[in-house]
Simulated assay, not measured.
Amino acid sequence: MSSMIRLEAVSKRYPARKDSAAVTALSETDLTIDRGEIFGVIGRSGAGKSTLIRLINLLERPSSGRVEVDGVDLTALDASRLRAARRQIGMIFQHFNLLSSRTVFDNVALPLELAGLSRAEIKSKVQPLLELVGLADKSGRYPAELSGGQKQRVGIARALATEPKVLLCDEATSALDPETTRSILALLGDINEKLGITIVLITHEMQVIKQICHRVAVLDAGAVVELASVESVFTRPRAPITRSLLSAATGDDVPPHLRARLSQHPIGGDTLLRLRFSGPHAESPVISRLTKAQGIEVSILHGQVDVVRHASFGTLIVALPVAGDALAAAIRFLESENVVVEPLGYLPASLRAAG
């Protein structure tokens, strides 16, 4: 598959101001996004997500490095050619950015008016877009008369008006309730499938990544710390920040009353492990086989099975009353069963039944 977007050694630095030091928002980043894929970028606030997405259409110009979209080096273009190139890159925003004095139709028509199309040409393009996003009956309404989800659908239609090859989504669902978020993500997936458009989606929510994306880059302090398929990130996360984001999203974090008592050193009680299963292993009796093979009484404190991109994955938090060689043998057995094992710490024996 050919690339649609390529960032080569891209950095963005903001100079020092009188009341603050210089800031490096993105550092020496290499990134390739394939043509037609839905690519997610996730990280906590301040990780550099919004800077990255604004570098793709040069709303932020990189301090160094090269940004290429559909084979064109945007950083080498003059102002006129950059404006033309940006017509191939649509963008939707967290807070919709609609013009309150214009109807739904006229909000979607705005980029076409700016491009100099006739009213007949505009109508021939806007009406099918309103049908695509499910707002054909809202053409004459104003933004104040719409729900948040409807406003975002207008924003999506407007972003598609110039028939872009790339759609950038900057926290496009973070102002919406969960049910509306799911419907907007489903719409974006439908648009990707019907139009073959490349979508780059910035978010701080792993549930958004899980629902729609093919691959995901995890940002931390201005650097890409993990880049893989969504299935791989959910079932075999490598970076600590990825594991932390996953725990918050999947509910597989250690219960607070146990977390407060965890020690990093054996204290004569139980070892706490987080186990991650994927594919057919998510539903196999691995814990039962461990008990039979090692003679270990395992306490399950928390667990669930979920689905990401049609593949099952599961997580368990378990307590094992072993340490040292016996613990090492148990971990080797679990890993031989294709389980990803993450030691979390040690619990006093008195807390074993508390989970």
Rank of each mutant, 00 (worst) to 15 (best):
S232F: 08
D177Y: 00
V233C: 11
A157I: 01
I184D: 12
E163L: 05
T162N: 14
H204F: 02
R238F: 11
L219T: 07
L188D: 06
K210S: 10
L187Y: 02
G149V: 03
T173D: 04
T198Y: 04
T173K: 12
H214R: 07
V216F: 09
A157C: 07
A239E: 14
E226V: 15
L227R: 07
L227C: 00
I199K: 00
I191A: 06
A239S: 13
V230E: 07
V166L: 15
R215C: 02
V216C: 03
A239K: 05
I156C: 02
G222N: 14
S174P: 15
S174V: 15
D220T: 13
L185M: 00
L188Q: 02
D220N: 12
L227G: 03
G149Q: 08
D170Q: 07
A175S: 10
L227D: 08
H214G: 02
R238A: 11
D190C: 01
G149P: 09
A159R: 09
E231P: 15
L188C: 10
C213Q: 13
I212W: 01
A157Y: 00
R153C: 10
A157R: 01
E226T: 12
Q207I: 08
K210I: 11
E231N: 11
E205N: 02
I197M: 12
L176I: 12
E226D: 11
L176F: 12
V233N: 14
I212S: 12
V230N: 14
A228S: 15
H204N: 10
R182M: 15
Q152P: 02
G189Q: 05
I156P: 00
E205P: 14
K194W: 00
F234R: 05
L227W: 12
D170I: 06
G222K: 10
T181K: 05
A217K: 13
R238G: 14
Q150S: 04
I209F: 10
Q211L: 14
S174I: 13
G189V: 04
I184F: 09
L201H: 01
D170H: 00
R158V: 07
L187P: 03
I209K: 14
G189N: 08
I184T: 06
L195G: 04
I202G: 08
A221D: 12
H204S: 07
T181S: 12
P164N: 06
D220L: 10
K165I: 13
P164E: 05
E163V: 07
P178D: 06
L227A: 01
V216N: 01
S183R: 15
S232I: 12
I156V: 09
R215F: 01
V218A: 11
E179G: 06
T198W: 03
A161N: 02
S232E: 15
G189I: 04
G149L: 08
Q207A: 08
R238D: 12
E171V: 14
T203G: 07
A186L: 03
A223D: 02
V224F: 07
S183F: 11
P240K: 09
A172Y: 01
I209P: 14
R153K: 12
G155F: 13
P178R: 09
V208T: 10
R153V: 09
S232C: 09
V166P: 09
R153A: 08
L168D: 13
R215L: 06
T198N: 12
E171I: 06
L185Q: 00
I199E: 01
D177V: 03
R215A: 05
A157S: 01
V218S: 08
I191N: 03
G196H: 01
